[in-house]
């Protein structure tokens, strides 16, 4: 059995809004092992983003224990968590969040800029490799405002890969893309999965669960369902089956 990358034990997260306490997470426990591709689903407000923020060390749980790659996160200070994000986590956001007017390479280099142990030449080399891995080897010097949504999301994925993270966290990574481009991105995630990377993918779209190795459903801050997917569909096959867009 692969080693566990993420271990959550009875994670709770409360928000205080005025005099009321919102229970966004009410005791969530699960373990993610290396090489898993987990989709997290649930209705709006079920706590998916809250969970992902905790997994990504952007937020700390109100109670419960969280081990990331064997390291307990809950008691960590801000700066230690920043270091952990820098070394062990790759984020992919719904709205890409690229630096404006900045080349693909410089965008991908960003996480490594905050790691002083990596030299300028190594940084550049790794950024180019990551961009090549997401199929943008010929778009290295394109600026973020000169790219399509799908291309921008690829740059964002390359940025999430470049620090060789323990886990890639994606929040609605295909939410802003059309069906075809969504599948292209899914193909990419499946490729990363095949290479042995650990991925946690938050989505609204139940279809996407068919392409992952495991699916967790949240409802009202609790796990409603946690199922291993025995029949993983091929995103590449689905992409090929899509009707070809009409050419003018």
């Amino acid at each position: 059995m692969n080693k566990s990358i993420i271990e959550l034990k009875d994670i709770k997260r409360n928000f205080k809004v005025g005099n009321e306490i919102v229970h966004a997470l009410r005791g969530v426990s699960f373990t993610v092992r290396e090489g898993e591709f987990v989709t997290i689903m649930g209705t709006s407000g079920s706590g998916k983003s809250t969970l992902l923020n905790i997994l990504g060390c952007l937020d700390t749980p109100t109670s419960g224990e969280y081990l990331l790659d064997g390291v307990p996160v809950r008691a960590m200070g801000k700066n230690e968590r920043a270091r952990l994000r820098n070394h062990k986590i790759g984020f992919v956001f719904q709205s890409y969040n690229l630096l404006a007017k900045t080349t693909a390479v410089e965008n991908v280099e960003l996480p490594l800029m905050y790691n002083s142990r990596i030299s300028a030449s190594e940084r550049k080399g790794r950024a180019v490799n990551a961009l090549t891995a997401v199929g943008l080897g010929d778009r290295l010097m394109h600026k973020s405002n000169q790219m399509s949504g799908g291309q921008m999301q690829r740059v964002a994925i390359a940025r999430a890969l470049v620090n060789d993270p323990a886990v890639i966290l994606a929040d609605e990574a295909t939410g802003n893309l059309d069906t075809r481009t969504s599948f292209e991105i899914l193909v990419l995630f499946q490729k990363l999965h095949a290479e042995g990377r650990t991925i946690i993918f938050v989505t609204h779209n139940p279809e996407i669960a068919q392409y992952s190795s495991r699916n967790i459903v949240l409802r009202d801050g609790q796990i409603k369902e946690d199922k291993v997917n025995e029949h993983i569909l091929s995103a590449a096959g689905a992409l090929a089956a899509l009707p070809v867009p009409a050419e003018d």
């Binding site: 820098n86 404006a100 960003l110």
Partner: peptide, 13 residues
């Protein structure tokens, strides 16, 4: 947003 992004990829305060 840029600041948020930088923090999410590991920039400290």
């Amino acid at each position: 947003r840029e600041i948020g992004l930088r923090m999410s990829v590991g920039a400290r305060g």
